[in-house]
Amino acid sequence: MMPARRDDPELDDTLVERAQGGDAHALDTLIRRHYELAYRVALGLVRDPDLAADVVQDAFVKATRGLDGYRGESSFRGWLATIVKNEGRSALRSAGRRNESDIDAVAPIAAPGSGAAERTILRDEARRVRAHVDRLPEKQRLAVTLRIDQGLSFREVGEMIGSSEGSARVNYHHGITKLRTWLTEESA
């Protein structure tokens, strides 16, 4: 089941205003509303679950320190995503970028079926296609994962990756096309 959408900028702005005034409950609510999205942005960047968790924790601490500086020029989610991305890039610089994923040859993905055998095949292929996601360029990777994993609209994806809705759509479709191409090449 997908998480509930958290795209209510007016509620966020109200919560930010209260948190800036020292309301700890408002701050907690902001964190609870957005930590999943922040984690997925971090994971899309650093591609390592443990490092992503560190990144998102550090990002929220920095966001809290800098909350008084948030003036609402962008949405709170966009502002937070920028902090997460900065933290993620900093963490990657510290850790040293990982090499490209070493992916074994994989079979083509079958169309989803309803039987147990088809579901087993789909699970296996799901793991394989997920491994390819790490090979995508950053914006395409984020567009694909935020669209599919978090269920964001193209407008929301654009907000997260710092681009227009149209650019988010293009990045998403390029990413999906590359994934299909790689999978087809492996099966050839």
């Binding site: 679950p49 993905i109 989803p112 699970r123 799901a126 997920r130 599919i148 994993d149 999906i176």
Partner: peptide, 12 residues
Amino acid sequence: RATVEALHASRP
């Protein structure tokens, strides 16, 4: 669709 379904099934 198969690619998107597989990605969705492997959502971390």
